[in-house]
């Protein structure tokens, strides 16, 4: 949308706002930066002046991009509620507004649709840059800060870099991933001798150099039969009892019968008697 089209659109909005201001029940309060919100039923009808200086300022600053993005204006003209939503994507315009606020030249205009209806109050902030309050239209989607011509020229002379046009809708190409910072795998001095991969390195050897790459062996193909683990030789671990080598384990009671044959006949008789 070109500047001329925007101006034309704003003019149309201005006309509509004026028409609404003329109607009873609508009030436009213009004041300084500390303008208060007044109820709609309070007294005087709004007095709106023609925004001639705005038009002049816009005409005098053809190079200022008010909004390079899409300007969505949703105006609901009603005797009851005035709701204006403006999206301004131009950072430069916002900066100009901020500068104007700093100078105390911003007038806040609150348009009140009135409390008599459902009690909803939605205020629209209209910002203008003027020593005297400009006749900002009530139905304006938002106040567009227009710097004076001198400022605009000054801004132009500063060769502010122009913004690139907004990206078209659609997916944006992801930026290339930034390479990860290379961090050497050398262990900190506190891990003297111990590597990060669980091994141990001789202290003092190649401490500052990069650690050798860890070679992970590729897994064996599935077709190859797993190599049988070599059986670990089993060795006995004997546990010897600790038993005293000498002890009285036997006890005797009584005495064996003594047989003392006096001759061979007695022994023979005893043996025959068994």
């Amino acid at each position: 949308m070109s500047t001329q089209q925007k101006v034309a659109k704003l003019e149309e909005l201005l006309v509509r706002v004026r028409a609404r201001a003329a109607e009873p029940g609508a009030r436009l309060s213009l004041g300084g930066a500390a303008a208060a919100v007044e109820p709609a039923h309070a007294a005087e009808p709004a007095h709106v002046e023609a925004p001639a200086h705005v038009e002049e300022a816009v005409a005098a600053a053809p190079d200022v991009e008010v909004s390079t993005g899409e300007l969505e204006v949703d105006v609901e003209v009603s005797t009851e509620v005035v709701e204006v939503e403006i999206d301004v994507d131009d950072q430069e315009a916002l900066e100009a507004i901020a500068a104007a606020e700093a100078e105390g030249e911003v007038a806040e205009v609150y348009a009140d649709a009135g409390e008599e209806d459902e009690g909803e109050q939605e205020s629209t902030l209209l910002q203008t840059s003027e020593p005297s309050p400009p006749p900002a239209p009530l139905s304006a989607p938002r106040a567009i800060s227009v710097a004076p011509a001198a400022e605009l020229e000054e801004v132009d002379e500063r060769e502010v870099p122009r913004h690139t046009p907004p990206p078209e809708s659609g997916k944006l190409a992801a930026p290339p991933p930034e390479p990860a910072p290379v961090v050497p795998s050398v262990p900190p001095p506190s891990l003297e001798g111990h590597t990060l991969v669980g091994g141990w390195r001789e202290p003092g050897l190649a401490k500052e150099g990069p650690a050798p790459p860890v070679v992970v062996p590729a897994p064996a193909p599935a077709a190859a039969a797993p190599v049988a683990a070599r059986p670990v030789p089993v060795r006995p671990e004997a546990t010897r009892p600790q038993i005293a080598t000498a002890a009285k384990v036997a006890s005797f009671e009584g005495a064996a019968p003594q047989f003392s044959p006096s001759n061979f006949g007695d022994l023979l008789d005893a043996s025959l008697g068994l």
Binding site: P261, S262, N263, F264, G265, L267, L268
Partner: peptide, 11 residues
């Protein structure tokens, strides 16, 4: 006599 003899004599 053998019966009355000592064990050593008989052996």
């Amino acid at each position: 006599g053998v019966r009355k003899a000592s064990l050593e004599d008989v052996v």
